[in-house]
Design a protein around this nucleic acid. Sequence first.
DNA 1: CAACGGACCTGCCTGC
DNA 2: TGCAGGCAGGTCCGTT
Length: 271
Amino acid sequence: MPELPEVETTRRGIAPLVEGKTIVSVVTRVVGLRWPFPPHLGAILAGRTIYTVERRAKYLLLRCDGGTLILHLGMTGHLRVVSPRVPPGCHDHVDLVFADGSCLRFNDSRRFGALLWTSDDPALHPLLAGLGPEPFDEAMSGERLYRLSRGRKNAVKPYIMDQRILVGVGNIYASEALFRAGIDPARAAGRVGLVRYRRLTAAIREVLDAAIAAGGTTIRDFSDSEGRPGYFAIQLQVYGRTGEPCLHCGEAIRQRRLGQRSTYFCRFCQH
DNA sequence: CAACGGACCTGCCTGC
DNA sequence: TGCAGGCAGGTCCGTT
């Protein structure tokens, strides 16, 4: 999936194409993704207008009259706006069909994505209620990372990927930010000092900001809402570069597993 | 609580 | 060529 920059790129891509549109019907081709779709989804959504497309963490919020559609792209989700007459391809699981003859099509091969409906404030939804601050929010700071990490023994990399601490940092950008901040990803979160957490905060922002500006990184199969791939849009300095030279010192980039996720680092530049 | 492993899925790549 | 095994951008849930 999409980490935060890819979700934000998707949001910017679809917002002008779906805001103000009225849903006339919903086509589902599977019973659900990560969870079953809400029962009577078509009846719930028909006639509603999408006012805005917002993002909270890696969730997209399609705010409608009377409620909000909550989408998560999981690992492999894509959204595109097409004509409903375009034949659906493999893993095109859901179409929201609009009154003007276009539709928002949700493709997700691994089906780790989600589509939920709430008539309440989405911020209060159980999946969103416990999320930490956005990386660019002033509530996210080196002080926060330092304070919440005291006494914690798990590695700093899974710590910054914990969406309760801050949102938006996934597996790629965690390795990238820790490299830029010079912090060993395996170091216990509770043994990283305030100065280094300030540096890490800046590195997280730099990496995410560069990726958003480039229209989403990434590798492999990410594409934006018009199907344009984001490949090589930004230069990854460590992720996926096992055995290749560190861009700072030339030593071979190493790979290890932390919290069941591949982690890339330079053992000379990171401590 | 915090931390960890398993689970959910499909596709792609590697190596035998 | 075929097949088993491992790995992939996420995150919830149950168990220690």
